[in-house]
Design a protein around this nucleic acid. Structure first.
Length: 561
RNA sequence: UGGCCCAUGGUGUAAUUGGCAACACAGCUGGUUUUGGUCCAGUCGUUCUAGGUUCGAGUCCUAGUGGGCCAACCA
């Protein structure tokens, strides 16, 4: 690999420094720790690429750990979806772990904490506790149960565990510092009663540990060396370290939490809560709707894992606020799809062209190269006949020199076929063009080697034979939000910016070779964009998604005028 | 009226840790092309402000400005 010179990000600098200061390469271990309460999105993809990328770079193991401490929100179905997504991204985890596997250790450590006088059972309402907690600018005050005896704490905590109390009656709190400038250190809650079945431990437990009492310990148990999370957890670091201080053994590795900025993508939202809202309110058809920035949505849309990984690598990782333009993501899909997809012809907005000097009952098969990028993809045959469809946008009665397409009296080449000349056109009563009459040059057939076939004409159009075309449903997607940063307005809700026209379903006319296209297969519809076969597709009713358009300089030229 | 984090072209990230500010995307010009795609060549544009330390500051210090995070029995 020529990657060795690649610049390091700040996390890699930290690791390099640790390596110099005495960590051995074998000490390195990472983890990707999603909560199974929703589907993974592009933000997670960054984290996945970071953690697993570090694993690859340092040849270190990476665990997949489910942070499953809140049975009220978590489900097995999400666990399965997450595993599928990480696998699809092309990464392999060392161990599949669950925070719930550590419930017993966590409980034992909590007992130890109580015995050392560092935790107590609080029996107030959450409102009362919130009041005593103070505000960021005012210190908190001690509640009435802060100095309960160790014996009473031990007894109450055990009874909490045994299910003797209803939810909300008692919680276990760490006894740290009610006046700390860090709100999280003001006696954080460690355990709460939750009488809900857990997707793995079922009803074994009715008390569940909070995030802060779980995460660092889980890292420690798995001997994760660098625990990477997003910036909003930065204030948690002090508590993460406090929790570790209570139990870390000098002979074992002590995990480090470090924080990076989450990636924000323009024209979308990346927050499970907000994505859930889009699903629940029916603005999209589900978590894997091709318009969603979820990994499953992107997969269904036709994105490749390579494209997403290259995107994540290009964007990199840092600590500042950011809003990455979707065009960078689109660049990376195009880059990959350009290399791997076979080219085909499809007309999405048909206009009939009759080639008047082509015999009525004749047809022929023309040879078409599958990819100019990859010869090994070979070629196929496409049927040509007297009546074909071209795109409506590809014909004008008259146009200036910049218009390389078909106009009356002008010539274009039909891709893989003949040069045609537009002679006349017919219109309906409203003046819409309904048909174009052309003549063709029989000697200009592509690949025939004749002088005429070598003749240069400015425009080349894609087309399909009317008699041979197969119809398919084609789903054209646009951005989900009309605003570049729907989440970034203090006075406006992100839902105000939802794009009502993010999905446009049309009928396309495809060359017949596409008849047997399988779900998931990707193609370039020449001059139009990259498309793949949607999950909803059946042999009787083909359904395609437009993954992304081709780069369109013609559209830019038109915009300027 | 608190604590913490951050600030480099339009966007995202680099800068051998104090030594000529660079890479990708986007934009613009041109060339090639049987995809107005791809590819190739070229081009535009950057260190928040004010002080300080230093031979030398994007990098260190001070102050300011701007943005973000922190008061869930969520993670």
């Amino acid at each position: 690999m020529s990657e060795t010179k690649k610049a390091l990000n700040f996390i890699e600098h930290i690791i390099e420094e640790d390596l110099e200061k005495g960590y051995s390469n074998d000490d390195l271990r990472f983890r990707f720790p999603p909560e199974p309460n929703g589907y993974l999105h592009l933000g997670h993809a960054s984290s996945i690429c970071l953690n697993f990328g570090l694993g690859e770079r340092y040849d270190a193991p990476v665990n997949l750990r489910f942070d499953d401490t809140n049975p009220a929100k978590e489900e097995k179905a999400y666990v399965d979806a997450i595993k599928r997504d990480v696998e699809w991204m092309g990464f392999t985890w060392e161990k599949e772990c669950y925070a719930s596997d550590y419930f017993q250790e966590l409980y034992d450590w909590a007992i130890q904490l109580i015995k050392e006088g560092k935790a107590y059972v609080d029996s107030q309402s959450s409102e009362a506790m919130a009041e005593q907690k103070g505000t960021p600018t005012e210190p908190g005050v001690a509640g009435p149960y802060r100095d309960r005896s160790v014996e009473e704490n031990l007894d109450l905590f055990e009874r909490m565990k045994n299910g003797e109390f209803e939810e909300g009656m008692h919680v276990l709190r760490a006894k740290i510092d009610m006046a700390s400038p860090n709100m999280l250190m003001r006696d954080p809650i460690l355990y709460r009663v939750l009488k809900k079945a857990h997707h793995r431990t079922n009803t074994d437990w009715c008390i569940y540990p909070m995030y802060d009492w779980t995460h660092g310990q889980s890292d420690y148990l798995e001997q994760v060396s660098h625990s990477l999370c997003t910036l909003e957890f930065l204030p948690h670091r002090e508590l993460y370290d406090w929790c570790l201080d209570q139990l870390v053994s000098k002979t074992k590795l002590r995990p480090k939490q470090r924080e990076f900025a989450r990636r924000n993508l323009s024209h979308t939202v990346v927050s499970k809560r907000k994505l859930l809202k889009l699903v629940e309110e029916g603005h999209v058809f589900g978590w894997d709707d091709p318009r969603m920035p979820t990994i499953s949505g992107l997969r269904r849309r036709g994105y490749t894992p390579e494209a997403i990984r290259n995107f994540a690598d290009t964007v990199g990782i840092a600590k500042r606020e950011n809003l990455v333009d979707v065009s960078l993501l689109e660049f990376h899909v195009r880059e990959h799809l350009n290399k791997i997809t076979p080219r085909v012809m499809a007309v999405l907005n048909p206009l009939k062209v009759v080639i008047t000097n082509y015999p009525k009952d004749e047809m022929e098969w023309l040879v078409a190269e599958n990819s100019p990028e990859d010869e090994s993809l070979g070629s196929r045959e496409v049927p040509f006949s007297r009546e074909i469809y071209i795109e409506k946008e590809d014909f004008r009665e008259e146009a200036n020199r910049k218009f390389f397409r078909l106009k009356l009296g002008g010539e274009v080449r039909l891709k893989n076929g003949y040069i045609i000349k537009a002679e006349s056109c017919t219109k309906d009563t409203e003046g819409n063009i309904t048909e174009v009459q052309c003549t063709y040059d029989p000697k200009s057939k592509s690949g025939s080697g004749t002088e005429e076939s070598l003749r240069k004409v400015k425009g080349t159009l894609h087309w399909v034979s009317v008699a041979h075309a197969i119809k398919a449903e084609v789903r054209i997607y646009d951005r989900l939000f009309t605003n570049e940063n729907p989440d970034g307005h203090k006075d406006r809700d992100f839902m105000e910016f939802i794009n009502p026209n993010s999905l446009n379903t049309i009928t396309g006319y495809l060359e017949p070779s596409l008849k047997d296209a399988k779900v998931g297969e990707r193609f370039q519809f020449q001059r139009l964009g990259y498309f793949n076969v949607d999950l909803d597709s059946t042999p009787e009713n083909l359904v395609f998604n437009r993954t992304v358009t081709l780069r369109d300089t013609w559209a830019k030229i038109q915009q300027k005028n």
